[in-house]
Design a protein around this nucleic acid. Structure first.
Lengths: 346, 346
DNA sequence: CTGTTAGCGCGTTCAG
DNA sequence: CTGAACGCGCTAACAG
């Protein structure tokens, strides 16, 4: 019992604790704690000896024991709708890189586009006492009022939302970007527009759709925009499914909800012998990496995914520091490539 | 001080504890614990009263305090190379769904394709006392020997690896699938093959490359396979960059490391006026959703991403139950679409 | 059926 | 400079 020669797993948990290393070093556990946490009055010699023993024993501090006493976990919980969307993956990359830079760890969980699950996950994060929660939103702002009351940790919303003084939001100005894109397309000579939207992510879809409609109406008050709101299971399928309606409505250009919808539409068009952009112009939203790689290269709106992630973490940090956070509104950028062209060549 | 009327945040941590609710209910904290955890000898009446107070106070149990005593967190840490790759996203979806089904939570962190970071993250997970770690591998098996010794929690590797009796691996049989694909292409009349590989993920790349070479050699011993191993920053760029070499080497078909490489190659080919599959056949690996949506639809090898995730969690569960885990070897499936065709039509 | 006591692993007082 | 004692929030004995 007194013999502490077994190097690993002396405790029941299979983990060595400061108690184990204290015994091995012949000192008090609190001394070990000080040695490990550096910067405290402690002898150079004993510190080094303790550190040596610690690494030899393969000691890993228990973050949970530590945060139980400090009531800080240095952890941010991220709830994402899904991980199969590269746009979201890149945002999360941005979050992780920035968080890490500030000494925070990030845990992500996916909600599968279900608002109930979003709340579930967020409260679950809270059980783990994350210091803050970042939500990649897919629904209306009103959905997130509950979070404000249910959660007692700072919350940051990432994604298109109503401005709301009560909750921190980091988003891009979708509407402005779309209207600039429409203006460009009108300058190219387009007049008959279609908008291909999605049935989930209702808020951001409405934002983009309305910006599209309004921008067209501003120039051609008589010209209605044909709107598709697709319910297929994935964005790619939604884009493909919208083809026939787009053709029959006579639009010369389709603004899609995002790049995936656009790629689905283009693929379906090409399979049907409809050439893009000669017969139909298609524009996307996001500027995924793949947008540039396909043929025709996609004309789209670049969303600063990494920057959004970065700003969300910075918002978290400010909230944690006790300051109020204004809504952060980032700007998109038009990326003009090959999938949209003047219809006059027809 | 005695007045506990303030409903929220009585404690310093901003969280209500069982102690707070015990006081409010006039019972002992341990009674509260029993009420909350159900299934224990406790009065129906008091249980309900306690539950009511708990929800009213917005109580959220501290998972960290709980796991400090139970030394179980019901948590699995997943280290992924990055999240911007849809193939990985889908695997993780599979992990999460299965884990949840068994009462486990999943935390994912990304290693950005850096083996040192992989280890860092894994040990960090261990500090949070996750019950197990799943690693989506990108490197050689030897890289992961360290994990076995450094980590004291069960580890499951997901991805192509040497069979190793000492570590649980869930993977697809890349080599077999490739050889079946090559056999199919040879039947179509192809004889001059190229393989477009990637410089990172060296092990799985070697596996696929060698299977390709060997399968060709088995039929045409004299016919060398042209091999590209691309170092560009992303798979899409790698595919695009390989085009010129592929053309000059005279191959009629290119087996790519994965779908993204294939899509990059096809895009570059079309921009250069080379038609796929008429002038060049291209086949991928993964069967991402987008593989079917583009034009020409990609002929590829379907990797059962979700199934791999599911099996990895099941392996974790078995390990946790104390049983040994055999290497799980899943089979791929050929998906024959439009991007590969007989070269005879030339 | 419920209250009491102890301790999970650690940081943080306080003494010495 | 270091040891002893206490408590973070909770569960798990053991009493009553």
């Amino acid at each position: 019992m007194e013999d502490a020669r077994t190097p690993v797993n002396p405790a029941g948990t299979g983990q060595v604790s400061i108690y184990d290393i204290a015994r091995a070093a012949g000192v008090n556990p609190s001394t070990v704690s000080r040695a490990l946490n550096n910067r405290d009055r402690i002898g150079e010699a004993t510190r080094n000896r303790i550190l040596a023993i610690a690494t030899e024993l393969g000691y890993q501090p228990s973050a949970i024991a530590r945060s139980l006493v400090t009531s800080r976990t240095y952890t941010i919980g991220v709830v994402a709708p899904y991980l199969s969307d590269p746009a979201i993956g890149v945002m999360i990359d941005g979050i992780e890189i920035t968080a890490e830079k500030h000494g925070y760890r990030v845990f992500v969980s996916t909600a599968r586009n279900d608002p109930e699950r979003e709340l579930l996950i967020a409260t679950n994060f809270q059980r783990y006492r994350v210091d803050a929660v970042i939500i990649v939103t897919t629904h209306l702002r009103s959905t997130y009022q509950v979070f404000k009351t249910t959660l007692s940790v700072p919350v940051v919303l990432m994604g298109q939302q109503d401005p709301d003084p009560d909750i921190a939001v980091v988003t891009m100005d979708d509407g402005l970007a779309i209207s600039r894109m429409i203006a460009y397309l009108i300058r190219q000579g387009h007049r008959k527009f279609a908008y291909v939207g999605v049935s989930d992510r209702r808020f951001s879809n409405a934002e983009r759709r309305d910006a599209c409609i309004d921008s067209v109406r501003a120039v051609y008050p008589q010209e209605p925009v044909h709107v598709e709101t697709r319910t297929e299971r994935t964005d790619l399928l939604r884009g493909a499914a919208s083809l026939s309606a787009i053709r029959t409505c006579g639009a010369t250009v389709a603004q899609c909800y995002n790049d995936m919808v656009a790629i689905g539409l283009i693929g379906a068009a090409e399979k049907a012998g409809i050439r893009v952009p000669q017969d139909l112009s298609v524009v996307g939203f996001d500027d995924l990496e793949i947008a540039a790689a396909i043929s025709p290269a996609l004309t789209t709106i670049r969303q600063p995914h990494r920057e959004i992630g970065k700003r969300a973490v910075e918002a978290v940090l400010e909230l944690l520091a006790g300051s109020r956070v204004e809504t952060v509104l980032l700007q998109g950028e038009l990326v003009l490539r090959e999938s949209a062209r003047s219809p006059s060549s027809k």
